[in-house]
Amino acid sequence: MNLTLKVWRQRNASDKGGFVTYKADGISPDMSFLEMLDVVNEGLVKKGEDPIHFDHDCREGICGMCSLYINGRPHGPKRAITTCQLHMRSFSDGETITIEPWRATAFPVIKDLAVDRSAFDRIQQAGGYISVNTGGVPDANEIPVPKPIADEAFNSATCIQCGACVAACKNASAMLFVSAKISQLALLPQGQPERYRRVQSMVAQMDAEGFGGCTNTGACEIECPKEISMTNINRMRRDYFTAKFFKEEEIR
């Protein structure tokens, strides 16, 4: 396959940046999208040019490190996969592909296609956990959890923190991501003691990071590589309002 790439190049956070066009020739349909970029980069290095920087690591769709806004969609045209699992057979010969970084105020560009997603870490640090120390916990089978509840908590827990939901949202809202973690812990019996404190802390941090609000468009759910459902956002809202109306505790 022979392709034309329009790639966002930006030296660093303060650089204005812009699109640069590259040819990608002799691409095999069996290559993954990132392997195609590897090939382009090897060519650039051979010519003495700076390779295109992009984040990636596990290349099996689970670490959440890869990103890329491809032809106007996070993780490209296919549903329920990350960029590293996207293969070139999903494109046609001669196609022009536009590649951009995630675009959101809370995700500043570091270089080219790599952005800073540490805001997500800080939201989790604000309360995305059950406060137990190592040791001294009850036997794993002491508290039974109904299978449907455990399964649903698992579904929420599969979020890979890639940020596609934010990139897809016209408001750059992080609610799908934040609500997934809140839901996972709010569904499980182990998460009950801190349930209402957690939702307030995490939402407060989310707002402080500069993410937008949710207006129920649903782009996040469609673009999420792990198919996290918007039901999580409803659960988060319910818990948040319950907390604010009836159970307001001091946020740490």
Binding site: I130, I143, L188
Partner: peptide
């Protein structure tokens, strides 16, 4: 054996059976 206890306490959603046990 302690590891499993610890992870469950942290909210790790291990696979369960209909009776609610792991």
């Amino acid at each position: 054996v302690n590891i499993i206890d610890q992870c469950v306490a942290q909210g790790v959603p291990f696979a369960r059976e209909y009776g609610g046990l792991l």
